[in-house]
Design a protein around this nucleic acid. Sequence first.
DNA 1: TATTTTAATTGTTTTTTTTACAATTAAATA
DNA 2: TATTTAATTGTAAAAAAAACAATTAAAATA
Lengths: 235, 235
Amino acid sequence: MQKYSKQTRLLLAVDCIIFGFDGDTLKILLIKRGFQPEKGNWSLMGGFVQVDESLDQAANRILKQLTNLEGVYLEQLQAFGNTKRDPIERTVSITYFALIDINKYEIQLSKDYDAGWFPLKRVPKLIFDQQEMVETAKKCIRYKAAMHPILFELLPTKFTIPQLQALYESVFNTQIDKRNFSKRILATGLLIKLNDKDKAGSKRGAYYYQLNMQNYYAKFQSFMNFIPNPDTLLN
Amino acid sequence: MQKYSKQTRLLLAVDCIIFGFDGDTLKILLIKRGFQPEKGNWSLMGGFVQVDESLDQAANRILKQLTNLEGVYLEQLQAFGNTKRDPIERTVSITYFALIDINKYEIQLSKDYDAGWFPLKRVPKLIFDQQEMVETAKKCIRYKAAMHPILFELLPTKFTIPQLQALYESVFNTQIDKRNFSKRILATGLLIKLNDKDKAGSKRGAYYYQLNMQNYYAKFQSFMNFIPNPDTLLN
DNA sequence: TATTTTAATTGTTTTTTTTACAATTAAATA
DNA sequence: TATTTAATTGTAAAAAAAACAATTAAAATA
């Protein structure tokens, strides 16, 4: 059968907002753009969608190019399609956000792309409409994390409750009572207590936990209150 | 400056999932597709994105073409980009969902497109991957309606509490206690009680309410519990 | 006109969840 | 051995949610 002959074809890109947590601050991974326009300026990792790949495949390819990671949490965020967003040529960008364990990110690859981690509060000026993309991603991760256990994707397999709390406090820019946080998290049934401790953070040491993957997958889509009164925090 | 010369351009479409509520059932508006392939088969209202319009503009244009409505609730849902989703030519579709007052929908226009309303539970076979689009939209409207007051967009300016409850029960496929629903809704401060009654539904008549637009806009983004235990319902 | 019928309206008690709040403990270090 | 530091744990009060049914307005009917 013939093609849709009279229609205009457009460039389609994928841009990734890659989140990582260093134990203290929520960060995103940026690169220095390698081609014109805006060559050398800070930018999200992105690329054009190829004819033979789906959007998800494109996003995974782009994520792997930079981080060498596969099978990590990657979710479609939003399509950005203002006509003037790319000054060279009309390009629609589908954004994805990724949550990765910052330790698994291979430094080796950062040289190819001049990559760097930036605290969400100190993101440099970005090209095109990418500032807006990052803002949207920030809202989305908060929204989702308030009700679904996605933040575990930012932690290593073994983690402690204080680490987890620091992550929540960083993402929501708030402070949570230790006792209540611990109760709330343990009540979900998502955690398995291990026998060894992390001695790095304190003299006493904090017990490691890992995810109960069975419960994690089972409860992932349900609504849970990880954050008290999330609407008072989002800014 | 020159263009991104070596990249492939793709067709970009917008498809709209248009929701309406007839007082009893949540429905979507479908058309009979007017061109090949799949001409004459039930389909979402859609169209190709033009070079000079943004995605939002395209969605609004397409919605207006069919319903003659402007300024209604319209939100980007998701981009669908499997390589084989359109058998004629690789086409990426950005889906939007619209919530409209079914009474404002102009019958006159349905003839141009052979349009019809279908209960969400009895949606006919749709073309391409549109079944999946509808499923995604259904999940999204439920997810959002459990926490944000979007369902008012489906009602006329004046509505009664029993009508509103029927809407919630229809969307979530559940039954809610009248006393608790009334308390919950009135406690939001979103409703203004009017002096006249709707006599259609009962002998006694039910008081009309309208939205307090001030509070509606102010509280729209906050998380509210409109539905008890939403995770037990979503299916 | 009195009675019946139908759906709208309203309140209280119980249960569950959330919040507020501080003492104790393990382990390294001085 | 004493000190220091952060991890761990429990309870009472407050707030929110859930369970539950009688009363009322108004039309229809006898």
